[in-house]
């Protein structure tokens, strides 16, 4: 079984989650927990950096869907950055680019957050 991990780095208002490995139905609880924790701490400006993510399944994308409403209601957002072509393809196939801002680099996402402060 391939592993999956989430680490987190807070910079000012913004929290960056770094996902690595395989995000599928089996490993979603870890990611889910990370987002729940952020919401609990009221840190709703979230960048998810997918630089080291090797694989994502629809269930993985489901986690993004499951939290976006609450996070946006609290005035935050989930922005994505550093998607590998393989991972981006899955996002694209399922129509995510219409709903989520996707950036090449983490800094661009940060800039976007700071613009709309």
């Amino acid at each position: 079984m391939s592993g999956f991990d989430v680490s987190r780095n807070d910079v000012d208002q913004i929290s960056v989650l770094y996902l690595s490995g395989f995000l599928d139905a089996h490993t979603t609880p870890k990611f889910e927990h990370a987002l729940q924790t952020l919401i609990k701490e009221d840190r709703v400006k979230v960048i998810v950096n997918l630089k080291d993510l090797d694989y994502i399944s629809s269930a993985g994308l489901g986690v993004f869907m499951g939290f976006i409403e609450e996070i946006r209601e609290k005035g935050g957002d989930i922005k994505l950055s550093n998607l590998s072509p393989k991972v981006f393809k899955v996002f694209d196939l399922l129509g995510f680019p219409a709903l989520y801002q996707i950036f090449d680099a983490e800094d661009e996402a940060k800039t976007k957050f700071n613009e709309t402060k």
């Binding site: 979603t28 399944s57 269930a59 489901g62 986690v63 499951g66």
Partner: peptide, 14 residues
């Protein structure tokens, strides 16, 4: 819960 994530991710609903 598992069903819900597959449903949301695949169908773009929440």
């Amino acid at each position: 819960k598992r069903l819900s994530f597959s449903l949301m991710g695949q169908m773009l609903i929440n």
